[in-house]
């Protein structure tokens, strides 16, 4: 079932190639179709500053590619990778294969923050009000959950999940109340909650890329420690892993990546749950192999989903709804098949 070392390398490289290919291909799709060669020329011209490369291309195309499509496509790709990475880390730390980046209530916190900003119609910081409120909501929720679940500087997997569920439930009630207060404005809140990558900018790309890079660095640095944490903290401690410290650092890192992703795109479920699960099925639980393939697969999947809703479907379906509608049944099938195999 599980693949050999060689096959895992092959899988990692093909996923990376497929993601890069999909970025170029997706950029060509949409109201104005752009051939792949033209896209590469536009990108090359921007990078090298050599205007001659644009000869013979409609002048509107560079704008469409560079200012409209690429920021959105890259944001979706990075968010997909970030959510999948956080999912791997959460599942590893919480010792629970059903945990996802939202288990600790980070999404509810972000949603509450965003709903508050939308309801109060806050525009003091312009375009960034909603994402900033969402991020603040997510970060505050995380701090409350960590405070609730830590005792004597130790945090255990069970108390974390329980605290996350409790805080999430309180926030969900808060969000319902905000929606009730919003009255006619409720549609704006609902749309934000369902997630979208429409009109993302290069700034969004940079913010998500920065968060993802930090998360990547941390998770690869501690990947082997995370493996050993799955033996339980008592074993991990006597194997030389500072389990409490590693848990804190990875949990904060993964949660901040999640918070950034949510604040940029709204709540997109299932990527952080399904991708790590599926990939663990293929490459095994070793985080040093699992992290790269999960990040790439998450990126590829969310890019594909966003491209379908942007360029294939006649109406733009909220991306969070699409991932749940495709991911949910898919997960059920796999879950059922594995259960039958285990009997």
């Amino acid at each position: 079932m599980r693949h050999s070392q060689y096959q895992i390398w092959l899988l990692t490289i093909s996923l990376a190639a497929a993601t890069l290919g999909a970025i170029v291909y997706a950029t060509g799709m949409g109201h104005i179709a752009v051939p792949g060669a033209d896209i590469l020329r536009v990108i090359a011209a921007r990078i090298t500053g050599n205007g001659a490369l644009l000869a013979g291309i409609d002048p509107v195309i560079p704008f469409v590619v560079l200012e409209v499509r690429l920021p959105r496509i890259l944001t979706a790709t990075l968010v997909g990778g970030g959510l999948a990475m956080s999912g791997v880390i959460y599942q590893g730390i919480l010792l629970n294969p059903l945990a996802d980046p939202y288990t600790l209530g980070v999404s509810s916190g972000a949603a509450f923050g965003a709903a508050l900003a939308l309801l109060a119609n806050l525009t003091m910081i312009g375009h960034f009000s909603v994402p900033l409120f969402a991020f603040a909501g997510a970060a505050l929720t995380l701090l409350v959950v960590l405070y609730l679940s830590s005792f004597n500087g130790q945090i255990s997997a069970n108390t974390l999940i329980l605290s996350g569920v409790i805080v999430g439930a309180i926030l969900a009630a808060g969000i319902s109340f905000l929606k009730y207060l919003a009255d006619e404005q409720v549609a704006v809140i609902i749309f934000w909650l369902m997630g979208s990558f429409a009109s993302r900018t290069w700034l969004d790309v940079a913010v998500v890329a920065g968060a993802l890079l930090c998360g990547l660095g941390l998770s690869f640095y501690y990947a082997r420690d995370l493996n050993i944490l799955s033996l339980g903290s008592r074993s991990a401690d006597t194997l030389g892993v500072e389990s409490t410290k590693v848990r804190w650092i990875l949990l904060l890192g993964a949660s901040l990546v999640t918070a950034v992703c949510v604040s940029v795109s709204g709540i997109i479920g299932f990527i952080g749950l399904i991708i790590p699960h599926l990939m663990r099925f293929l490459v095994g639980p070793d985080n040093r192999k699992l992290l790269p393939v999960s990040i790439l697969a998450g990126a590829l999947l969310l890019l594909a989903a966003d491209t379908v809703t942007r360029a294939v479907l006649p109406v733009e379906v909220p991306i969070g709804v699409l991932t749940a509608l495709i991911g949910g049944p898919f997960f059920c099938v796999i879950f059922r098949r594995r259960q039958r195999r285990a009997l």
Partner: peptide, 11 residues
């Protein structure tokens, strides 16, 4: 240790 449960499929 006394508890030796491992939920992940390491060999």
């Amino acid at each position: 240790p006394q508890d030796f449960a491992i939920d992940f499929a390491f060999t």
